[in-house]
Amino acid sequence: MGYAPDPRSTLAPIDATTEPSLIPDLIARIPWPRWVVFIVILAAGVLLVSCLICVICCCCHRRRPRKQPKDKEAVGLGSAQSSTTTHLVQPDVDCLEPCSGGAQQWGRLLLSLEYNFGSQEIKVGLRQAENLKTEGTADPYARISVSTQAGRRHETKVHRGTLCPMFEETCSFLVPPAELPRATLKVQLLDFKRFSEHEPLGELQLPLSTVDPQHVLESWYQLGPPGTTEPEPMGELCFSLRYVPSSGRLTVVVLEARGLDPGLGETYVKVQLMLNQRKWKKKKTSSKKGTTTPYFNEAFSFLVPFSQLQNVDLVLAVWARGLQLWAEPVGKVLLGPRASGQPLQHWADMLAHARRPIAQWHHLQSPREVDRALALQPRRLPLPRLHS
């Protein structure tokens, strides 16, 4: 006898399509149409692939050495087969940088030169300097002179904490046309030191015979190694300045001098104030005998209102009395708004640090040169009245 299969004991076949699926259920639960969902998924995939491609390209670009563009590749002048001489071709900027293994570079100067046949003066424009050679930073300034004018020189303003100073200063020197072929322009770059010798940074000696006086020339010149600094036969003077704006009191303390001529018998310092290019006030120190390094340490005070400060010139002069009965000036220092170089910087430091004494050494300049820079106006004496 056969038994009928029990419907409860038989296992029904399992269909795979009846199991729940995660992705279709999620898609079915989204209230957006299906074509919108597919577009969003496609856009996300494209964005992800683009990001991966960018990351791969950046990694490969960093590992690969960068090639120099063809328009900036250095071209050797020796390989150029042409009749053009190399000194007519302006060198590339990369060639001006100091090369390893070559001669030591001291920097370069941008100068402009112009000669005026009418006034017989050569006009020197010192524009800027670059890549000065020193350890760390410096406070550079320039000293310009011409070999045919002994004792005449121009000092620029001191530029703080830079090896690429922008001077933009102009000076003139009297050079007759007959002396032009044998004259030499000398530009010294020095590092300003307040209480010690100034450190030379480089030097340029340019024979004016190589300059065409018919044209205005402006070009870069390579600096050479600094030469020995010229001896100062007139010596140096140390003094301090202090100005109090509220009371209008200018205090000058004459400290000491050094490097004076041993043949001077008796020396003293005269302090003089000029107002509107006319002599105004003057005082002098005590005399020191038989020494090349006299020590004074004497203070002098002047009442100078702040409104008149821009019209005042301060002159400190070292005077000497020899075997003769009369005294003569050995050297002078001019300070004030019309000064230049180191004295002008000292005057500016005094104004920038009010109520504080600022001491500094100064080289004595030729008395004739200082008097020429002052251009003092003569005092007009009153004419006597004629009685009728």
Rank of each mutant, 00 (worst) to 15 (best):
Leu250Met: 13
Leu22His: 08
Ser196Tyr: 06
Ala4Phe: 01
Pro337Cys: 11
Ser50Met: 02
Trp32Pro: 00
Glu199Ser: 08
Ala150Leu: 11
Asn297Phe: 02
Phe195His: 15
Thr10Pro: 03
Gly290Asp: 10
Ser247Arg: 12
Glu369Asp: 09
Arg368Gln: 14
Leu255Arg: 14
His87Asn: 15
Ile144Trp: 04
Gly290Ile: 02
Ala74Arg: 11
Val216Tyr: 03
Arg338Pro: 06
Pro7Arg: 00
Arg63Tyr: 09
Ala354Thr: 07
Leu364Asp: 00
Tyr295Thr: 14
Leu264Thr: 00
Ile30Asp: 15
Cys164Tyr: 15
Gly76Thr: 15
Gln188His: 04
Trp319Met: 06
Lys288Met: 07
Thr285Ser: 05
Glu19Ala: 08
Glu203Asn: 05
Thr170Ser: 14
Glu232Cys: 05
Ser366Thr: 07
Ser147Lys: 03
Cys54Asp: 04
Ser240Pro: 05
His61Met: 09
Cys164Val: 06
Pro69His: 13
Glu130Trp: 13
Arg372Ala: 15
Ser286Glu: 11
Trp106Lys: 02
Thr292Val: 11
Leu316Ala: 03
Asn297Arg: 13
Glu155Met: 05
Met166Tyr: 14
Leu264Trp: 09
Pro176Thr: 11
Trp326Ser: 07
Phe192Met: 09
Arg249Trp: 07
Arg66Met: 06
Thr162Ala: 05
Gly45Gln: 08
Asp25Phe: 07
Thr137Ala: 11
Gln308Ser: 03
His87Phe: 15
Leu113Phe: 04
Glu179Val: 05
Thr85Ser: 14
Glu155Cys: 02
Asn297Pro: 00
Arg66His: 07
Arg143Gly: 00
Val271Met: 10
Arg372Ser: 10
Trp326His: 03
Glu114Gly: 09
Asp92Lys: 15
Asp191Arg: 04
Leu111Arg: 02
Thr156Pro: 01
Thr293Tyr: 06
Glu169Leu: 05
Ser247His: 02
His87Gly: 09
Lys282Thr: 05
Ser83Lys: 14
Leu204Cys: 05
His198Asn: 14
Phe302Cys: 01
Arg258Pro: 00
Lys270Pro: 09
Arg127Gln: 14
Val93Cys: 13
Gly107Phe: 03
Arg29Tyr: 06
Cys58Gly: 10
Arg278Asp: 07
Pro231Trp: 06
Thr251Arg: 10
His154Leu: 02
Ile56Arg: 10
Leu163Val: 06
Glu232Gly: 12
Ile39Trp: 07
Leu189Ala: 02
Phe296Arg: 00
Arg143Cys: 02
Phe239Pro: 01
Leu381His: 13
Lys70Phe: 08
His387Lys: 14
Met234Thr: 05
Thr184His: 13
Ile30Gln: 11
Leu132Ile: 04
Gly118Cys: 06
